[in-house]
């Protein structure tokens, strides 16, 4: 069953199209790595896929409903770039941030035992239970990204959308972060990940979509490295980040 189904999606800022005629489906349990050069429309496509934007033409369905009017908010866990995450000045603690995962389904009223359990087990699952009373703004980048994952787990999200989550995170924490992501994917959570490091994607993702305004490739990582899609999408530029792990 597909979680996301995009059909001929086009989106423009003013007259400048950033996503053009993209058709893409993401199956339940998939780990999709979304790659492409800077300004290739990756973030916009991700926002279209989870319903933060409405396509100019074409359609996106999310869990079977039109994405932009989806009522499945609690099923989506969004992990932003660390730099764009909430300002560090707000004195929110880790536990408070993870509790937010329960808010969409409990806007009012007391938290039940289920809510508390979901929060506690999410904190344990991503390994930040000992940081629960620390302020989010005082954590390292890697720890902070785990808070957002924990928030998604507390929400019992079955789709994780991540926009270059490890920019500015040190190499060791990055590895641990992607290992965690793979474990969660193995548990059945669908992952859509924007990543500039193609090595990371080919190592961890089960499928790759290569975008530069249009979709140049969508398939499994093994086939991706065999094709010219990468060079085509990046216009033969030499600045492609590619590490082999």
């Amino acid at each position: 069953m597909s979680v996301i189904e995009a059909t001929d999606v086009t989106f423009a800022y003013g007259h400048r199209p950033v996503v053009d005629g993209v058709s893409l489906s993401v199956d339940e349990g998939a780990f999709l790595g979304l790659v492409g050069p800077n300004g290739s429309g990756k973030t916009t496509l991700l926002e279209l896929l989870i319903g933060l934007r409405r396509p100019d033409s074409g359609s996106v369905t999310l869990f079977g409903d039109p994405a932009h009017e989806s009522t499945h908010g609690e099923r989506i866990g969004f992990v932003p770039q660390d730099v764009s995450a909430s300002n560090g000045e707000m004195p929110t603690t880790v536990r408070e941030a993870v509790r937010m995962g329960r808010y969409p389904r409990r806007l009012l009223g007391r938290f039940t035992e289920d809510d508390r359990q979901a929060i506690d087990s999410a904190l344990v699952r991503v390994g930040i239970a000992d940081l629960a009373d620390r302020r989010v703004g005082r954590l390292s980048g890697g720890q902070r990204q785990r808070v957002f994952i924990a928030r998604a787990l507390a929400a019992e999200a079955d789709l994780l959308a991540l926009d270059e989550p490890t920019v500015g995170v040190d190499a060791e924490s990055r590895e641990a972060f992607y290992d965690l992501l793979c474990e969660l994917n193995a548990d059945g959570i669908t992952v859509v990940l924007i990543e500039h490091d193609i090595g990371v994607v080919t190592t961890h993702a089960s499928e790759i979509a290569c975008l530069n305004r249009e979709l140049y490739f969508h398939g499994d990582p093994g086939a991706f490295v065999e094709t010219d899609a990468l060079a085509d999408a990046y216009g033969g530029s030499q600045s492609v980040v590619q590490h082999h792990h």
């Binding site: 908010g73 969004f78 909430s86 808010y103 969409p104 409990r106 957002f148």
Partner: peptide, 22 residues
């Protein structure tokens, strides 16, 4: 008091709040 939770969410992480359907 009535809108405390969504207000906190929106203040902490606006995009995340939108993704969560608020």
């Amino acid at each position: 008091t009535a809108a405390y939770r969504p207000l906190v969410y929106v203040t902490f992480d606006e995009i995340g709040a939108r993704a969560a359907g608020l």
